[in-house]
């Protein structure tokens, strides 16, 4: 049922992704606490779906399937992404 995962490539932090770039969420670091991890899943921020980085300051904002999500850097820093 899990969609095919892309071949492992270089992973970068979501906070380090330039504006306008499309990325795939690779994984959440251990630093993100379980409740917040669940919340990220619920927002649809997982799996192989690409998201577009809209801005990094004052918060990271990504567009995930027509919905804008704002993430504080304390969280976005521990979201690992790979180029889509």
């Amino acid at each position: 049922m899990t969609p095919p995962t892309p071949p492992p490539g270089p992973r970068i932090r979501l906070t380090g992704t330039p504006m306008g770039r499309m990325v795939r969420i690779a994984e959440f670091g251990d630093e993100i606490d379980p409740l917040q991890r669940e919340q990220l899943h619920a927002y649809g921020l997982s799996g192989s779906h690409p998201v577009r980085v809209l801005q990094q300051q004052p918060m990271t904002v990504v567009l995930s399937e027509h919905v804008e999500l704002a993430l504080e850097h304390a969280v976005a820093r521990h979201v690992w992404v790979e180029p889509a």
Binding site: M1, T2, P3, D30, P34, R37, E38, H41, A42, G44, S46, G47, S48, H49
Partner: peptide, 19 residues
């Protein structure tokens, strides 16, 4: 692993919904 049961449930649901 690192995921608690609630987070695993959420992740799998997400994958199913995505498909």
């Amino acid at each position: 692993g690192r995921d608690t049961a609630p987070a695993r449930l959420a992740r799998e649901r997400n994958a199913g919904a995505e498909t």
